[in-house]
């Protein structure tokens, strides 16, 4: 579509600024310059490809599908891994060969930030407190920024609701740190850098909230940063 119009612009650019022109531009004789036209069109195609591939790469690498449900620090993707998933989550999940939790099994919620919006850091100490939605079982896992498990001091990388100390009202407090803590201790990476990033994954099994519609207004634990070295 640009083939006929752009060459004139190119030649014009090169010459009009310093050469005095007697004729108004509209009726000036037009000479095309094939090499310049070709390089201009090539530039457009190359720029477009870079922009298109780059933006797709960024969207996929962020691993944050479009149809997320956000509650506090937590995000869930109830439609991921179903036929109704958006193209981004289809690409993310098939590229990672991820087998999602299906709706009849449970729901995974992922946190990448604490309550004040800071990215989670595996060298810090966090308190995760509050309540979870009704579920027959839930587990809490700490992974690195890419979702991989990391070596911890006790070798354990998760906590589950069946082995949890609770307050009389049913609420709980979890201390997430690399060094041992009393109470409910969720071990973090034994040797980690702040740049590794971190995610908390809360998996609710057999929970009524597995469909996205039921996710509005549920209470989830709050993640607070207690201190960093």
């Amino acid at each position: 579509m640009n083939g006929t119009t752009l060459p004139s612009q190119e030649t014009h650019f090169g010459e009009a600024d310093w050469q005095k022109q007697d004729l108004p531009r509209a009726i000036r004789p037009h000479r095309s310059h094939p090499l310049r036209t070709l390089s201009f069109l090539t530039l457009i195609v190359v720029l477009a490809s870079l922009l298109g591939i780059g933006s797709a790469y960024v969207m996929i690498e962020r691993e944050q599908p479009l149809n997320a449900v956000t509650i506090g620090s937590w995000r869930a993707y109830p439609k991921a891994g179903t036929a109704e998933a958006d193209p981004y989550s289809v690409a993310i999940y098939t590229r990672g060969a991820v087998v999602p939790l299906a709706s009849g099994e449970g729901l995974a919620l992922v946190a990448r930030e604490d309550r004040s919006g800071h990215l989670l850091d595996p060298t810090c100490i966090y308190r995760i407190s509050g309540q979870t939605p009704t579920a027959r079982l839930w587990t809490m896992t700490a992974t690195d920024g890419d979702g991989h498990l990391v070596e911890t001091r006790p070798g354990r990388v998760h906590l589950d609701s069946q082995n949890l100390l609770r307050n009389p009202d049913g609420s709980f407090e979890i201390n997430a740190a690399s060094e041992p803590h009393s109470g409910n201790w969720l071990p973090l990476a034994a040797s980690a850098n702040a740049s590794d990033g971190m995610r908390f994954v809360l998996r609710l099994y057999d929970a009524p909230v597995t469909t996205g519609a039921a996710l509005d207004g549920i209470t989830l634990p709050v993640i607070e940063r207690l201190g960093c070295p």
Binding site: N2, I44, L51, G52, A56, Y88
Partner: peptide
């Protein structure tokens, strides 16, 4: 505009 238009097409093709 033609860069943006082509980039959109490339983006969609890559993701799909």
């Amino acid at each position: 505009f033609s860069v943006l238009f082509l980039a959109t097409i490339v983006h969609i093709l890559v993701v799909m």
